[in-house]
Amino acid sequence: MLAFLSAPLFGLLTGGDWNPADLSGADLWAIVTSLAGGAVAVTMIALIGTPLAFYLARTPGRISTIAEALVLIPMLMPTLALGILLATVFGPAAPAGEFFARIGLVLTNSPAAFVLAALYSALPTYVLTARSAFVEVPTEYERVARTLGDTQLRVFFRVTLPLAQRGLAAALALCWVRALGEFGVVLIIAYFPAGMPVQLWTDVQDLGIQAVFPLVATFLLATLPAPLWLGLRARRRPA
């Protein structure tokens, strides 16, 4: 099984030309699009997803169950289907798309559309992983802080967040991978400007697999190190 799982690494080491000088202008633009759009999306996800994850972790009941189901639905949808459905909502002929276009945000084939695709792709992953991190924080510490006079907001920032920081870091790392690696949704609503996944697909069609390894290497360097390090770090037992 380990040999089977190691097969991609063998392909990585024995593949085509890795010369960074072979990156084309389109490849470089795709790298910039993915890194910039991914950074904006992950920042927005952290800001809006963290309170939702905390709510799901601390508020049992029917409403939170419905909220969690709504978070799960985009994750469970086939990505091409999700992209098509988003196009019907945010496309130029849709009411929401027309509204955002009037205020200067075109949500198809634009940098804003890339961020939108990354949001829908990565937000559920972050929320569910962050929720698990908050669940692991003992509520007794929060109650003690409240009895000492701290407000709920102060307890969240001074007690809950520090205790959940390792799990939240892992959630952000996974979110980053999902935001940069999404292909199906991006293919439908944000084909231009092409990010790294779409550019890789285009290059494979035009040039073949052996010619795309410089962009593959950049893609892997942008996505693999943080989640791999955090995953290995999480295995360490506390002293």
Rank of each mutant, 00 (worst) to 15 (best):
Thr129Lys: 05
Thr129Tyr: 10
Thr129Met: 15
Thr129Gln: 13
Ala130Cys: 09
Ala130Ser: 06
Ala130Tyr: 11
Arg131Val: 10
Arg131Cys: 10
Arg131Met: 14
Ser132Arg: 13
Ala133Ser: 10
Ala133Lys: 02
Phe134His: 01
Phe134Met: 04
Val135Ser: 00
Val135His: 03
Val135Arg: 04
Val135Asn: 00
Glu136Lys: 03
Glu136Ala: 15
Val137Thr: 02
Val137Glu: 07
Val137Ser: 02
Val137Phe: 10
Pro138Met: 03
Pro138Ala: 03
Pro138Tyr: 04
Tyr141Leu: 14
Tyr141Cys: 01
Tyr141Asp: 00
Glu142Ser: 11
Glu142Trp: 06
Glu142His: 02
Arg143Ala: 04
Arg143Cys: 00
Val144Asn: 01
Val144Glu: 05
Val144Ala: 12
Val144Met: 12
Arg146Gln: 08
Arg146Glu: 08
Arg146Gly: 03
Thr147Ser: 13
Thr147Pro: 00
Leu148Ile: 05
Leu148Asp: 01
Gly149Trp: 12
Gly149Thr: 06
Asp150Phe: 15
Leu153Cys: 03
Leu153His: 01
Arg154Met: 12
Arg154Trp: 11
Arg154Cys: 03
Arg154Thr: 11
Arg154Asn: 11
Val155Lys: 02
Val155Arg: 01
Val155Tyr: 09
Phe156Leu: 14
Phe156Asn: 04
Phe156Gly: 05
Phe157Gly: 03
Arg158Gln: 13
Arg158Asp: 10
Val159Asp: 09
Val159Ser: 01
Val159Asn: 05
Thr160Cys: 12
Thr160Pro: 07
Thr160Leu: 10
Leu161Cys: 06
Pro162Tyr: 15
Pro162Thr: 10
Leu163Thr: 02
Leu163Gly: 05
Leu163Ser: 12
Ala164Cys: 08
Ala164Arg: 04
Ala164Thr: 05
Ala164His: 04
Ala164Pro: 05
Ala164Phe: 11
Ala164Gln: 02
Gln165Leu: 15
Gln165Glu: 14
Gln165Lys: 15
Arg166Ser: 13
Arg166His: 14
Arg166Trp: 10
Gly167Lys: 06
Gly167Asp: 04
Leu168Glu: 01
Leu168Val: 09
Leu168Gly: 01
Ala169Ile: 04
Ala169Gln: 11
Ala169Gly: 10
Ala169Met: 14
Ala169His: 09
Ala169Cys: 07
Ala170Thr: 10
Ala170Cys: 07
Ala170Gly: 12
Ala170Ser: 13
Ala170Lys: 01
Ala170Ile: 12
Leu172Tyr: 00
Leu172Gln: 00
Leu172Ala: 07
Leu174Glu: 05
Leu174Met: 14
Cys175Met: 06
Cys175Leu: 09
Trp176His: 00
